[in-house]
Design a protein around this nucleic acid. Structure first.
Length: 303
DNA sequence: CCGATTTGACCCAA
DNA sequence: TTGGGTCAAATCGG
């Protein structure tokens, strides 16, 4: 119908305009972590909405989510999870601290153990209050042999079961990290579209993938040193392995149209923003991370 | 047989 | 007291 088209057009214009404004704001507020995150979200949201409107009118999202091939590609890492409710908390006594790193994975059905290049061994699982899905606990497989005490928690998100929140604690001291940065052939991490696709909520936040394909935001916090992240793929590399609070938002550009058509959307649903990672993880505590960070954005031609 | 996972119990900070 | 993190025995799977 025509009216629908008009609506679409308006929507697109509106969203794009908004995205533009947000980008401007982002530029101005680059130094402020929370503002930065916020504007990034808004930009993504706007462009996403625009694409969505263009592609499907006002209907269902056509574009699927990006898979996360073996890299923490579509992951978002934040520092300091500790905010309100759904956050991975750091309890337990003497245990150091949960290194302030949390990743959101949206990989269709791959369980959070996908990727990062280390070998993990599951040592526990727990139902978490208020969460639909249990949280899994992993530790480095070389804990004993190499005294590597790195651990991680993986939790499936309630609102979007295809997303995982992964929190890392501790440093890998083992030398078994399967070379995290240079992406080998994504064999065992290949994502196959699964039934999970159908689970994805019909939120318009999906075509985001298009954006992610071209957007690469990489911020690193080097708690102390001004080392800059060497690789876009953030996994704790041995070189900069001393601080785990690096915060990255990185969208690789290896998703082509084909992928976009195949995979289902699961990343963020910025529009209905209440439940997205930004608000969830980025609230209270995380607001003061990145006091002095090296920030470097790379909006390589968004379109 | 050995290593990984599961799962209930236990520990402990809040 | 509660809820999250870890332990460790049982179980599974290659």
């Amino acid at each position: 119908m025509d009216s629908a088209c008009v609506y679409e057009e308006k929507t697109v214009i509106h969203e794009l305009t908004q995205g533009l404004q947000m980008a401007e704001q982002l530029r101005v507020n680059l130094h402020s972590p929370e503002a930065r995150d916020y504007f990034i979200q808004m930009i993504l949201s706007s462009y996403n909405n625009a694409l969505f409107a263009l592609q499907s009118g006002v209907g269902q999202p056509l574009t699927p989510a990006l898979p996360t091939p073996r890299l923490p590609g579509s992951s978002i890492s934040f520092g300091s999870p500790g905010s309100g409710e759904n956050v991975i908390s750091r309890k337990r006594k003497g245990s150091p601290t949960w290194e302030d790193e949390v990743r959101i994975w949206s990989d269709n059905g791959l369980e959070g153990n996908a990727d990062d290049g280390y070998n993990w061994r599951k040592y526990g699982q727990k139902d978490i209050q208020g969460a639909k899905f249990p949280r899994s606990y992993y530790r480095c497989s070389y804990r004993n042999s190499q005294k590597c005490f790195a651990t991680k928690q993986v939790q499936r998100k309630d609102e979007d079961p295809t997303e995982f929140e992964i929190a890392y604690k501790g440093k890998h001291t083992c030398n078994h990290s399967a070379s995290p940065s240079p992406p080998p052939s994504p064999k065992k991490y290949e994502i196959k579209p699964t039934h999970h696709q159908q689970l994805s909520p019909p939120s318009p936040g999906e075509t985001l993938s298009n954006l992610k394909a071209n957007l690469s935001v990489n911020t690193s916090d080097l708690g102390g040193d001004s080392d800059t992240v060497s690789s876009l793929f953030s996994f704790p590399s041995t070189s900069s392995g001393l601080n785990e609070d690096r915060h990255q938002l990185h969208f690789p550009n290896y998703f082509d149209d084909e992928l976009l058509q195949v995979y289902s959307p699961t990343f963020i649903s910025p529009v209905t923003s209440e439940s997205n990672i930004f608000s969830e993880w980025g609230s209270s505590q995380s607001l003061n991370f990145l006091a002095d960070v090296d920030t470097d954005f790379e909006f390589s031609s968004l379109f």
